[in-house]
Nucleic acid binder design. Structure first.
Length: 506
RNA sequence: AGACUCGUGGUGUAAUGGUAAGCACAUCAGAUUUUGAUUCUGACAGUUAAGGUUCGAAUCCUUACGAGUCUACCA
């Protein structure tokens, strides 16, 4: 693995940064569960910690009690454990509320921050540039004497700069809601800009990796660290490095949209298989390695890109094609009569030392695997093609019976010593058929340009048929290949979830 | 509109200013095959454009064009 982040860190080391001082952090806000996009940030941070053999913190960036709660903290921790990443220290930005508050007061004293308030009568904002008054109002804010939206603390930087984030950004606001961790201790909360870099500095993080939308905040990040810098406490200034975030066109990774879908009752929770949260993948029987392999594949750069969720499917398929045991399943069965096979006879075909499947005179095959009109590009069953029934005989059709223009029965004969069979198909014996339920879905996705959500109703249940003897051998929570169809997760008795279809080229 | 960031085959990524721009996926052929899968072999295809600096530019500079992010009391 080589990417610009590693290069940048190596550069810092060559410029004198001690390797011992390297430290990373993953800092999610506990306002939702993790999705595919988070894994990118997770992976790079934990990978770097491993690569440089240094420490990594898991820090919950909990500066806004309106959005956050303990439920998500627990969920996120479980998600990270599921992925197999181990952190050295668990921390919370809320642990630092007191010191952040003290630093903000210092800022006021240094005339680098001021109070702004909104006067209802005149509908205007007023700024206070008097240190004592600023401290007075800030204290009142803290004591809960003011309402939300009336008073804020702003940094005093410049109104002239073109970068909006440097235009006297708000660093403290009033939020009168209990914080899940600090409870009712605070009613003022630092904003991201005033909390994140400072927390990195407190935790002695050397490189603070984040996605590219924070690049506009970088000057502010550096400026605020310079404000609070104290050589005796920590001589290392953390460095923010941005990388492009995971942009998948055919699934949703935005929490806002998850919430919208829940609100509209399109999905029940974050575990819906049409989503791309880690929980929904877990529910579909995915192993974390599938997702990690996918993230590795994507790489880390600063350029923006759009990729398809199919890239994940490719990685999943690579693993499953080697691992997943095969079963024969039909979706749309059609009856086959094998004329030269004994009536009422059951031939048990050994698949391996353990398992057998029954073959009889009457079997089903997939409707699409037969074609009446001969065609050179069609390899499967027809009146001309010899084909092999998987694990068993070579057959050819010689007669069909139609009802209302639809084929109802196909008469076949077994042939021997036929070579160059082009196709092998799946089948199930008539008396041994078992109905199964398959949950089929497509990812819900949002088209930004068209401002439209797609595949809302894509979760559909379909019926399949398989062998009732063989299905008893299957293990719950395993993934199986439905021969020539795709990969399916066996999640409860007689029930499967689709993982991916094999691509059909015919 | 401005500020910031980024432009390498269809897609995702490599290349201390120095070999003929490498790899993977996709696509298309051929071989193997009891999955039209897999596997193997091969082919196709690229530095956004124009200038400049240089013995030498994907890389540095300028301009144009294109894309993304931001312009929240969210992170």
């Amino acid at each position: 693995m080589n990417n610009f982040i590693i290069k940048e860190i190596n550069k810092d080391i060559n410029n004198g940064l001690s390797k011992k001082k390297l430290k990373f952090r993953f800092a999610p806000e506990p306002n939702g569960v993790l999705h595919l996009g988070h894994v990118k940030a997770l992976y790079i941070n934990f990978k770097l910690a491993k690569l440089f053999n240094c420490k990594i913190n898991l820090r919950f960036d909990d500066t806004n009690p309106k959005n956050e709660n303990l439920f998500y903290v627990k969920k996120i921790i479980n998600n990270i454990k599921w992925l197999g990443f181990k952190w050295n220290k668990l921390s919370f930005t809320s642990d630092y509320f007191l010191i952040l508050y003290k630093w903000a007061k210092k800022l006021i004293i240094k005339k680098k921050a001021y109070i702004q308030y909104y006067n209802k009568n005149t509908q205007k904002n007023y700024n206070v540039y008097d240190i004592d008054k600023n401290l007075y109002h800030f204290n009142n804010m803290k004591l809960g004497k003011y309402d939300e939206n009336m008073f804020v603390l702003r940094a005093n930087i410049s109104k002239e700069l073109p970068n909006y984030h440097l235009k006297n950004p708000i660093i403290y606001r009033i939020i009168k809601k209990n914080h899940y961790k600090t409870l009712n201790k605070w009613c003022i909360y630092p904003t991201y800009d005033w909390a994140h870099g400072q927390s990195d500095y407190i935790e002695k993080i050397s490189h603070s990796l984040c996605s590219i939308e924070f690049q506009n905040h970088k000057p502010l990040y550096n400026l605020f660290i310079n404000y609070i810098y104290n050589k005796t406490f920590n001589s290392l200034k953390p460095k923010q490095i941005e990388f492009s975030k995971l942009n998948i066109i055919d699934t949703i990774t935005s929490k806002r949209q998850f919430n919208y879908l829940i609100k509209k009752k399109i999905i029940k929770n974050y575990e819906d298989p049409r989503l791309s949260t880690l929980n929904s993948f877990k529910k579909k029987g995915y192993k974390s390695i599938y997702i990690i392999n996918f993230i590795k594949k994507i790489g880390f750069t600063k350029r923006n890109y759009n990729i398809s969720i199919k890239t994940l499917d490719i990685e999943v398929k690579k693993i499953l094609i080697k691992k997943a045991p095969i079963i024969m399943v039909l979706f749309n069965p059609i009856k086959l009569i094998i004329k030269n096979f004994k009536k009422k006879y059951v031939k048990w075909i050994k698949l391996n030392n353990k398992y057998k499947i029954p073959f009889t005179r009457y079997i089903y095959i997939e409707y699409d695997d037969f074609k009446l009109k001969h065609d050179n590009t069609f390899y499967r069953l027809s009146l001309k093609n010899y084909i092999r029934l998987k694990y068993s005989y070579i057959i050819k059709a010689y007669k069909i019976i139609k009802k209302k223009n639809k084929i109802k029965k196909i008469y076949c004969k077994i042939y021997k010593n036929i070579k160059n069979i082009k196709s092998t198909i799946q089948w199930v014996s008539y008396n041994f058929i078992k109905k199964i339920k398959i949950l089929n879905y497509k990812y819900i996705y949002f088209n930004k340009k068209k401002n439209k959500i797609y595949n809302i109703n894509s979760l559909k249940s379909i019926i399949g048929y398989t062998d009732k003897i063989y299905i008893k051998n299957l293990k719950i929570n395993n993934i199986y290949q439905f021969l020539r169809i795709g990969f399916f997760y066996f999640y409860k008795k007689n029930n499967f979830i689709k993982i991916l279809y094999m691509e059909k080229k015919y």
